[in-house]
Amino acid sequence: KSAVKALFDYKAQREDELTFTKSAIIQNVEKQDGGWWRGDYGGKKQLWFPSNYVEEMI
């Protein structure tokens, strides 16, 4: 599983989504079709976030 870095702040709209700030590192990313991926951040595990808010880390 990979890690991504947030390009923008994102505030969860639902309880199954992540809230994060710009430059946050989201771990254990599971990529899905449809523009939403799952990952771990801030003590939350495998919640959804919009993939267009992040960049992949190499």
Rank of each mutant, 00 (worst) to 15 (best):
A3K: 14
S23K: 08
F8G: 07
F49R: 02
I25T: 05
K45R: 12
K31D: 04
Q27S: 12
A24D: 09
E30P: 00
G43P: 07
K22R: 12
G43Q: 08
Q46R: 10
S23E: 13
E56V: 12
E17K: 00
V4Q: 05
G43F: 06
W48R: 11
M57T: 10
Y10F: 07
Q32T: 14
A3L: 13
R14I: 05
Y10W: 08
W37R: 01
S51Q: 09
F8A: 11
L47P: 00
L47V: 05
K45L: 14
K45G: 05
S2A: 13
E30I: 15
E56S: 09
A12V: 02
K44M: 14
K5F: 09
S23G: 15
W48N: 04
K5R: 15
N28I: 04
N52W: 13
S23M: 11
S2L: 15
Q32I: 15
E55W: 07
I58E: 14
F8R: 15
A3V: 15
K11C: 15
A3I: 15
A3Y: 14
K45M: 13
Y10G: 01
W48Q: 06
G34C: 11
P50V: 02
A6N: 02
V4Y: 14
V29N: 02
I58G: 13
I26C: 04
Y53K: 07
K1V: 13
E15C: 14
R14H: 11
V54G: 03
E56T: 09
Y53N: 04
Q27D: 11
S51G: 06
G35I: 09
T21Y: 12
L18S: 01
D16C: 15
S23P: 00
G42P: 02
K1G: 13
N28R: 06
R14K: 14
S23I: 03
W37N: 02
E15M: 10
S2H: 14
F20E: 00
W37A: 04
M57N: 08
V29S: 02
G39A: 00
I26N: 02
A3D: 12
F8S: 08
D33M: 11
Q27N: 13
I58A: 13
E55D: 08
E17Q: 12
F49C: 04
F20A: 00
G34K: 07
K1E: 10
Q27G: 08
I58P: 14
K1S: 13
K45V: 15
K31G: 03
F49D: 01
G34M: 06
D40R: 01
K1Q: 13
W36N: 03
D9N: 09
G43L: 08
Q27L: 15
Q32W: 14
F20C: 04
G42E: 10
Q13S: 10
I58R: 12
A6F: 01
T19Y: 03
P50L: 06
A12R: 04
D33N: 11
S51K: 11
V54Y: 01
T19L: 03
D9R: 06
L7F: 06
D40M: 01
G43Y: 07
G35N: 08
S2T: 15
V4N: 04
A6D: 04
K1C: 15
G39C: 05
G35F: 10
K11E: 13
A24N: 07
E30D: 15
E55I: 13
D33L: 11
V54M: 03
N52D: 13
Q27E: 14
L47W: 05
K1H: 13
K5W: 06
A6P: 05
A3E: 13
T19V: 04
I58S: 13
N52F: 10
F49A: 01
D40K: 01
Y53L: 14
T19M: 03
N28S: 06
Q27A: 10
D33S: 13
I25M: 08
D40E: 02
W48E: 03
S23N: 15
G43C: 10
A12H: 05
G35P: 10
S23V: 06
S51I: 07
W37K: 01
Q27R: 15
E56I: 10
E17W: 00
Q13H: 09
T21L: 13
Y41R: 03
D40C: 06
G39M: 00
K11T: 15
D16F: 08
K22S: 09
T21V: 12
K22V: 11
K31M: 11
K5G: 00
D40V: 00
K1N: 12
V4S: 05
R38T: 07
R38C: 05
I26D: 01
A3C: 15
K44D: 10
K44V: 08
I25K: 04
D16P: 02
Q13R: 11
K5A: 06
T21Q: 12
K22L: 07
D9K: 05
G42A: 11
Q46G: 14
E17H: 09
K22D: 01
L47T: 04
G34V: 06
G39S: 01
A24Y: 02
K44A: 13
I25C: 09
F8P: 01
T19D: 10
R38D: 00
I58W: 14
D40A: 00
F49P: 03
D40G: 01
L7Q: 07
A3F: 14
K22W: 06
L7W: 05
K1M: 13
E15P: 13
W36Y: 08
G43W: 06
G34L: 06
E15D: 13
P50C: 09
F8I: 09
L18K: 03
L47D: 02
W37L: 04
G39W: 02
Q27T: 15
A12F: 02
Q32N: 12
W36T: 03
G39V: 02
D40P: 00
I25E: 06
Y53T: 09
K5P: 00
K22Q: 11
I25H: 05
P50Y: 03
Q32L: 15
K44N: 10
K31P: 06
Q13A: 11
K31Q: 08
S51Y: 07
L47K: 11
K5C: 15
L47A: 15
Y10R: 03
N52E: 13
K44I: 05
Q13G: 08
L47G: 15
Q13Y: 06
K44R: 11
P50R: 05
R38I: 08
A12I: 03
D40F: 01
T21H: 12
D33E: 14
K44T: 06
E56L: 09
K45A: 09
S51W: 07
